[in-house]
């Protein structure tokens, strides 16, 4: 069974089809890099996979179930364009809050553990609004990983990260892959993404222009997929 299945998905904004008959899949343990120009539909596809909006046509499955099923949501971790943590709460309060929402046995203990793993234990009681951008991003990463998701959906995860946050995220993603977790990430940072990816999908104007395993040519020349299958 695929960890992520996208079957004939269309998504319309008014009359405009942002996604056109998208067919994709990611097996358990795979890392799928979604690439494409701005406006190709990467964010729309990731948000639809995450269950934030319903497809106009077609079907999304996470381990065979709808992404809106309560138990399926427990399996997913999402990092979007925003950090999805509250400025008015401290780092510890934020992670404890999400630990409680995910029904963790000991939310505070898990929160402290992830604050340590992301190098934020020293500022655990500081309000997020006082954090630097890099610290906020690391907290967002901790929030997404906190409940041990089996599928990670990452929208431009390396954008606007400082060096330390990139290193933290790359280490965590490698550990997640080694642990058999599935990653689907959209990105413009081809070099970082292709280092991790096992598969690549190129989106072009809402359609899948290429979907297949990552090859040596792609790693050697990150622009190769665009040159071969994209708009050049």
């Amino acid at each position: 069974m695929n960890a992520v299945g996208v079957e004939g998905v269309w998504k319309f904004y008014g009359d405009y089809p942002a996604l056109r008959n998208v067919e994709l899949s990611a097996a358990p343990g795979a890392c799928l890099a979604l690439i494409g120009r701005n406006g190709a539909g990467k964010t729309t596809l990731l948000r639809t996979i995450a269950g934030f909006s319903r497809p106009g046509k077609g079907k999304i499955t996470i381990f065979g179930n709808s992404p809106r099923d309560t138990e399926t949501r427990r399996l997913m971790g999402f990092i979007g364009h925003g950090i999805s943590v509250y400025d008015e709460l401290s780092a510890l309060e934020n992670l404890t809050l999400f630990g409680k929402l995910y029904g963790l046995a000991d939310p505070k203990k898990s929160a402290l553990e992830w604050l340590e793993r992301t190098g934020l234990e020293r500022v655990k009681d500081g309000l997020v609004r006082e954090f630097s951008r890099g610290m906020r991003q690391r907290l967002a990463v901790a929030r997404a990983f906190l409940h041990g998701p089996k599928v990670l959906l990452l929208d431009e995860p390396f954008t606007a990260l400082d060096d330390r946050a990139i290193a933290v995220l790359q280490r965590l993603l490698r550990e997640a892959l080694a642990d058999g977790k599935t990653i689907v990430m959209s990105t413009h940072q081809l070099r970082e993404a292709l280092e991790l990816a096992t598969h690549v999908a190129l989106l072009n104007r809402g359609q899948v222009a290429f979907h297949g395993p990552r090859t040596a040519e792609m790693v050697a020349d990150p622009g190769w997929v665009y040159a071969r299958y994209g708009e050049g």
């Binding site: 364009h81 925003g82 999805s84 999400f98």
Partner: peptide
């Protein structure tokens, strides 16, 4: 809406 917190709530396993 600030920091896209609604996304985190919608993706959490709560009704």
């Amino acid at each position: 809406l600030e920091n896209d917190c609604l996304d985190a709530l919608i993706s959490a396993p709560i009704s």
